[in-house]
Amino acid sequence: MPDAVTHLCSGLLAHIPWVPAAARRWAPVFVAGAVLPDILSRAPSTALSVVHSHWVPLPSLLLYCWGPLHLPSGILLYSLALTMLFPAVQRRTALVALLAGATLHVLLDLTQRHVGLGYPLLVPFSSRDFEWGLVGSEASVPWAPWFALVTLAVWGWLRWKKQPSTPGTPPEGEKDAHRPEAEG
């Protein structure tokens, strides 16, 4: 899969062409969706494997249970759960943003090539695995620092663009940004 920096940057950039500036306040939720599959599955799996290998033997269950959090079925469940933490009127938008970010994450992961082991996207209904196998599993590593710089530059430019050119005028794209929370 691409590294976490690449997933983070892809989340920060991918929504820009599609989302109007006024709705860009939901970008953090989309970014969260784009990063959470790795944070919730790979991070604990890796950490517990290190603990098991070097310090304390752990039950196999704790080492192998994290996979679904990186697959559509688990992503849907935790996205619904996270959505329930938002105010009720915002949940639909939050869910759409989370799932859209997660879809981006999965699509990026599918481009990679793993040794005969793709992603079993239909778990628990099927164990058949999928991947497009276009690039190696570490292909994003050399590009990640540059991608991060481009991301910082784009967001810096967007922030600069939002500044009002004359005092008293609302920043560009912010005229209708302060909508009440009663949005679905």
């Binding site: 590294d3 976490a4 920096v5 690449t6 997933h7 983070l8 953090p28 970014v31 969260a32 990063v35 790795d38 944070i39 790979r42 991070a43 890796t46 040794v115 190696g136 599993s137 570490e138 994003s140 590593v141 050399p142 990640a144």
Partner: peptide, 26 residues
């Protein structure tokens, strides 16, 4: 068949950096 993952440590470092960056961002 085998594949050597020469950049695995770098990828792990990027993973940690991405995690910390996201924690700050969130």
């Amino acid at each position: 068949w085998r594949e050597v993952h020469h950049s695995r440590r770098h990828k792990a470092a990027l993973g940690l950096l991405g995690l910390l960056s996201f924690v700050g961002y969130a």
